[in-house]
Each structure stands twice: as structure tokens, then as C-alpha cells.
Simulated assay, not measured.
Amino acid sequence: MTGNEIDPEGRQELLSLPKTLAEDVARNLVMVAKLLDEDPEQAYEYSRIALRLASRVAAVREAAGFAAYAVGKYSEALAEFRAARRMTGSVDLWPVMADCERGMGRPERAMAMAGEPEVQRLDKAGQVEMRLVAAGARKDMGQADAAVVTLQSPELASNSIQPWTARLRYAYADALLAVGREDEAREWFGKALEADQGGTTDASDRLAELDGVEFVDALDEDADAEDAGGEGGSKG
């Protein structure tokens, strides 16, 4: 990694640093982004290095927040997101900040954030994300029926496929299942699967569970067959 892989916005923020330091920070931020999904613990370690090098850069604080969030350090993540927001004035992190409150066992705070004016300043994707967080908070509070209602929206009803469509439909299906509406849940898991071009959900597995389909690992089957064959040979 050279650090040149960093996104243009992040590169712009690093211009305030001496060149060598900026390059070091950029390399660490690139590694955070690269490892966040496949190895969040390692991504977290890289984020801590970037944070030590340049804690006054908003992109660094944001990356540190997402890395902490990925490993379940919600209090730490929230602190970093708040710092990034103070630096930029942006509301983009509002939904994930609310989800950190959920992670810390404070769903009522997440619900309060869902009603704040900042939500109206979010773009469409951010508003959908906030709706997902609010529905999750409702479920955390034992309000399963309210979670279903929270997810009912024009975005859910739309036939247009957006980056968030699969996750929204999946969450709705899951909420329906939680209140015993199994037939509707099956329908919406199917709709989630149709929209899930990148495999971001396990909608196909959930559908299979509802239909009583049990998957068997082919490798396990082969191993069992070999064992059986070996046992037969020894008896002969």
C-alpha cells in the first residue's frame, strides 16, 4: 500500500499534514478500509496507529470510529464519530452514532436521535439507515409491532433497486417474522433476495429455514463417505 489508494476527500484532508506524515497516515487509512470487513481486529489496530499520528484530522477520527464499531467497541466508536462530526459539521454519521447508542444498551437514546432535526438533513440513504436503526431500537425495547410500522415507508414500497433496498426489505421481513406474520415475512425475504445483488444479506438462508430446507456441507458428506469406505475395507 502506498497510500495513494485513499479517496480524494481523505487525501484533501491530509494536505494539512507534512508530506511524510500524510503518507504514513494515508497508508494506515487505506489498510483500515481494506481490512474492515475481512479482518476488523486488524483494521482496528491500523486505525489506532492513524489516530496516534493525526488525531486532528476528521477522516482519521471517522475511520477510527468505524473500526471501533466493527469490533463492538461502541462507546469508543461514538466518541470518535462525535469528534469527526464536530470537525466537519456533517450529519452523515448520525445514523451510526444512534446505532452505537443501541450497541451500548441505550435504545431509547437511539429513538430520541431518530426524532432530531439532523435526520431531515440526511440524504435519502442516510434517512433509510436511520429508519433501520430506529426499527432496531424498537425491537430492543420489546416493541416488535412498532418496529414493523417504523419500516413501512415509500422506500420500502418502491420497486426501484437502490444500494439500501435489500437491507431495508430484509429488516422488514425479519420484523414481520418477529410478530408471527410468517407468510408475509417469506414474501419480503424473497424480495430482499431479488434486490441483493452484492450478497449483503443472508435472505436465501432465511427463506430456506422458513421452508424447512436443511443444507449439508458437501465436504462433510465426502468425508463421511470416505470413512464409511475405509471401515468397509478393513472388515473385508
Rank of each mutant, 00 (worst) to 15 (best):
A54S: 03
A54G: 14
S55V: 09
V57S: 01
V57W: 06
A59I: 15
V60L: 03
R61H: 07
E62I: 14
A67F: 10
A68Q: 09
Y69W: 11
V71K: 05
G72C: 06
G72Q: 14
Y74H: 10
S75G: 12
A77W: 03
A79G: 09
E80F: 08
F81K: 00
R82V: 03
R85N: 12
R86K: 15
G89L: 15
S90D: 14
D92N: 12
D92W: 13
D92V: 13
L93A: 02
W94Y: 11
W94G: 00
M97N: 05
G103C: 00
G103H: 04
G105S: 07
R106C: 02
R106M: 12
E108R: 15
R109N: 06
G115W: 02
G115E: 12
G115H: 03
P117R: 10
L122C: 02
L122R: 04
Q127M: 07
E129F: 04
M130N: 04
L132S: 00
V133I: 11
V133C: 03
A134H: 07
G136Y: 02
A137Y: 02
R138E: 14
K139H: 06
D140Y: 05
A144Y: 13
A144C: 14
A144R: 13
A144D: 15
A146R: 13
A147M: 08
V148E: 00
V148L: 03
Q152R: 15
S153G: 05
L156M: 11
S158A: 14
N159K: 15
Q162E: 15
P163E: 09
W164L: 07
R167M: 08
L168N: 05
L168M: 07
R169T: 09
R169L: 08
R169C: 00
A173D: 09
A173M: 09
L176W: 01
L176V: 02
A178H: 08
R181L: 09
R181T: 10
E182L: 10
